[in-house]
């Protein structure tokens, strides 16, 4: 009984694969055989009817300093908080105070990054 069920399961999977394969191959074949130019057209970038005058390989600056500070502020913060969570109950108040001083320092970095516009995408 269980063997038969397993077989029918595999048969179903096989059917899905075969049908999917036939479908994809069929669609591709129809495209190749019916398109007026199956190779497709290579065209310049569209500039409202004009020819591009230069190639824009590196248009946008990643602004590494704000990105770095934001990474440190959020990722490293988490990094230190995982072990801290394990000991904070044992160590007590001093651990809480230390962590929040640390968070405060990192928050200064976040504020700086905010002033630099790291969070305002446009």
């Amino acid at each position: 009984m269980t063997g038969a069920e397993a077989t029918s399961g595999w048969a179903g999977l096989l059917a899905v694969l075969v049908l999917g394969g036939v479908g994809v191959t069929g669609a591709f074949a129809v495209h190749r055989l019916t398109a007026v130019a199956p190779r497709g057209l290579t065209a310049w970038p569209w500039l409202s009817g004009w020819h591009p005058s230069e190639h824009a390989l590196s248009r946008y600056h990643a602004r590494w300093y704000p990105v770095t500070v934001v990474f440190l502020a959020f990722d490293v913060e988490m990094l230190f908080m995982y072990p801290w969570v394990l000991v904070v109950a044992d160590v007590g108040l001093s651990a809480v105070v230390e962590m929040f001083v640390f968070l405060g320092v990192l928050l200064l970095g976040v504020l700086w990054a905010h002033r630099e516009g790291a969070f305002s995408w446009q």
Binding site: L47, H55, A56, L57, R63
Partner: peptide
């Protein structure tokens, strides 16, 4: 690439980070 010159930097209007400057016609 494709025979086009690369875009060059220019003194930047925004923040001195010298992003590439592109000549882009809009229209018609």
């Amino acid at each position: 690439p494709a025979g086009l010159d690369l875009a060059g930097g220019e003194d930047d209007l925004r923040d001195g980070l010298e992003m590439d400057v592109l000549r882009v016609p809009l229209g018609p």
